[in-house]
């Protein structure tokens, strides 16, 4: 009951979804669409767990007066403000849009732009051309970066008398040929892994998602 029924449910839903993909009949397509709708309804409930975990973590931090516990109130404030405005009034309410455009988007963009500095310092340590492979990595990254900005072509055309716009052409060639071929190899490997893992899950061989206990 505790393990067999979930395994059976996983098998039935997995098999139905897989077979429905190959059958264009309206009935099977209707079933497929209904099950996808069910998934879209069930997923938001999973968010409850994530939010409960976050709230629990910060609540414990406040109760135990852990280091920087005062900041945990900010997590609650930010979350409550968005939820109190967004759920009853909708995501197009001016106050919700204001919070999104002036609080969330700027911080999101800034957090990611901060990575420009971190990635640069990481590159300084990692990109030492000590081996042939490291040199290749360095050369490919440099060509892609220089070819990405118009000033790369501008400087090349001013200084070198041959090969107009060579940096951007070289960048495009790298992206379209050696880069794409390695990506294809990786994608093919991952895809074969995903398919074999999915088959294992549907057949009940892979059961780690059930967790421990009986």
């Amino acid at each position: 009951m505790r393990r067999q029924v979930p395994l059976a449910l996983c098998f039935i839903f997995g098999l139905v979804m897989m077979l429905a993909e190959f059958s264009p009949h309206p009935v099977s397509q209707g079933i497929r669409k209904e099950i996808i709708d069910w998934s879209l309804i069930i997923w938001p409930f999973a968010l409850v767990l994530a939010v409960a975990s976050l709230v629990h973590t910060h609540w414990i931090r406040i109760r135990r007066r852990a280091e920087y516990w005062q900041y945990s109130y900010l997590v609650f404030i930010g979350m409550i403000v968005m939820v109190v405005i967004g759920i009853p009034f909708g995501k197009r309410h001016p106050a919700f849009v204001w919070m999104f455009e002036n609080v969330q988007v700027p911080m999101d963009a800034t957090m990611f732009s901060l990575l420009a500095f971190i990635i640069a310092s990481a590159a300084y340590r990692a990109f030492r051309a000590r081996t042939f492979e490291a040199s290749l990595l360095l050369a490919a990254a440099l060509i892609v970066m220089i070819g990405n900005v118009p000033v790369g072509d501008f400087i090349w055309n001013k200084l070198i008398p041959f090969g107009d716009d060579l940096p951007s052409t070289a960048r495009q060639w790298i992206l379209d040929n050696p880069n794409l071929s390695s990506r294809r190899g990786i994608i093919l490997g991952i895809s074969l892994g995903v398919i074999s893992q999915s088959i294992r899950i549907i057949l009940g061989i892979e059961r780690s998602y059930l967790g421990g206990g009986d």
Partner: peptide, 26 residues
């Protein structure tokens, strides 16, 4: 009891993944 919704979501995801990954990624 949480295994029930998880099993359904994982089953649906796996069932969708096999034909779609085969088509799009292989």
């Amino acid at each position: 009891i949480i295994r029930y919704p998880f099993a359904i979501l994982i089953g649906v995801g796996s069932g969708l993944a096999i034909p779609n990954v085969m088509d799009a990624s292989i």
